[in-house]
């Protein structure tokens, strides 16, 4: 697989982690646990932003990696 595809796969996994944490934060009824999941969701969100930026760069540099 090309690095472009690898990066996109990783991004998809990151998104699924974010969604998983978000659903845990909603479903749990212990307040401090809720806060913890939410905080970690924010961290994952930051990682997601960085990764998306990087994917944009790669796509600009290497035309053939464009699209899904």
């Amino acid at each position: 697989m090309t690095i472009g595809a690898d990066l996109k796969q990783c991004l998809a996994t990151i998104k699924s982690i974010e969604a998983g944490l978000s659903s845990l934060a909603i479903n749990t009824n212990a307040e401090d646990e809720q806060r913890l999941y939410h905080e970690q969701m924010m961290v994952i969100e930051e990682i997601k932003q960085d990764l998306m930026k990087r994917i944009g760069e790669v796509e600009r540099e290497e035309e053939q990696y464009k699209g899904f």
């Binding site: 690095i3 690898d6 990066l7 796969q9 990783c10 996994t13 990151i14 699924s16 982690i17 998983g20 944490l21 659903s23 845990l24 990087r54 760069e57």
Partner: peptide, 29 residues
């Protein structure tokens, strides 16, 4: 399976990111 799956996904992603760091030539990336 929700929680173990989430943890496994996090481990996978972490390993992927480390791999990318090793593979890339760009210092910034």
């Amino acid at each position: 399976q929700e929680k173990p799956l989430l943890l496994a996904n996090m481990k996978k992603c972490q390993a992927d990111l480390e791999l990318f760091a090793l593979a890339t030539d760009s210092e910034k990336a």
